[in-house]
Design a protein around this nucleic acid. Structure first.
Lengths: 204, 204
DNA sequence: TGTACATCAGTGAACGCGCGTTCACTGATGTAC
DNA sequence: TGTACATCAGTGAACGCGCGTTCACTGATGTAC
């Protein structure tokens, strides 16, 4: 049974996070300030400690939520293309959220343990959509992956599927991270078309 | 004519940068501290201002040097494979240096204008090594690039070469940035083999 | 070669700032009889 | 339904810290006659 105090706590926690995401979107994680968030929420800095034991715990929560949100966004994908665009849309909707998960790691910060599970969940989707596609040219890397398939859990997929899932990940991330970091800005072309071409290449 | 004072200044500037790189390697750019660098160099904080007008100017210098160093590293590449491995070795030699250039951008910081020139220099190498290889399957993106080829300067290359150079960039970056950020750490496979497979794929 | 002056590297003190976090306290809200 | 007590959200003051940067000053180094 949920008491009204618990309901209130959950609401305030959510509002704190909402403002944390807002600040994150403009400043990046390394400049995320508890006091600034508290001020925006409308309470004093110390009051935040009723809801999060420390700055790191807040960030941990944000990282977990980001992972969770990505897993939910990609879950419904029926094939490789849908998975790719689900990720792209999720990334463009909030670039800093994407970078929080896949960007340059924060120096002293260590990701919470249970993100591994959510990360596996995302990987499971990638394996599922790739299992439905042809394997493409086998590589020497396939054999190596066969010996290191622990991360795939118990999913009964071929080594070629493992390879193609990893390749999907690195290629999608390659385009997205450079785009989000603004490295294509001066070049004039449309990153969406580059992305489309790259996704197309994944299906051959 | 170089006076001894000028020689001394250049030496101290170089030593400051050396210590800056050292600190950067362990803390990342957002935590780079002038006072900490000064202490390591063996002088007081304010003394640094004889050599760099501000923290941003120091970072600008580091960014420029990083770009320059990458351009030098890749310059000698005779083909696509050599270019890829030159970049990889340069990145692994100092991950934070790679991330300073291609990682998550520092929130308030704006890159110096002349990095564009060096960046073009690097791109020119990529275009050169790709011009010597077959074009692969044409994509819809090729036509789009034909209309946005300003970034290639006056180099007389086909749109397919532009597309393959950009693809090279995003794929190499995709593997390297995830590797450097430690995202493959829990998966057990050897990133070098993944990289090799990806480079191989670029030649087909 | 020696002296007078200008240049400039480096110092210590200080400024203002914002950070995360702790603490004692107030006042409102919920619980037990 | 009313009262006594416990719980807990939120406050303001404070701590210690490190940051980038400015400033007045000292002392060494180079330059000009």
């Amino acid at each position: 049974m949920e008491t009204s105090r618990e309901r209130y706590r959950a609401q305030v926690r959510a509002e704190i996070k909402r403002h944390a995401w807002e600040q994150l979107a403009t400043t990046g994680v390394s400049a995320l300030s508890l006091n600034a968030i508290a001020k925006n929420v409308g309470m004093s800095g110390p009051a935040l400690y009723r809801y999060f034991p420390s700055r790191d715990d807040l960030i941990t929560d944000l990282v977990r939520d980001a992972y969770r949100s990505l897993a939910d966004a990609v879950q419904a994908a029926a094939n490789v293309t849908e998975a790719a665009y689900a990720i792209r849309e999720w990334a463009l909707a909030d670039p800093q959220r994407y970078l929080l998960v896949y960007g340059t790691p924060v120096p002293g910060y260590r990701a919470p343990g249970d993100t591994t599970e959510i990360s596996n969940e995302i990987m499971a989707v990638l394996l599922r959509v790739h299992a439905a596609e042809p394997d493409g040219r086998p590589t020497a890397f396939d054999a190596h992956l066969e010996e290191h398939r622990g991360w795939a859990g118990v999913m009964p997929v071929t080594a070629a599927v493992l390879r193609r899932a990893v390749t999907f990940w690195t290629r999608v991330h390659g385009v997205l991270s450079l785009e989000l970091a603004g490295h294509f800005a001066g070049m004039g072309f449309d990153p969406a078309l580059l992305f489309a071409a790259e996704v197309d290449g994944l299906l051959r």
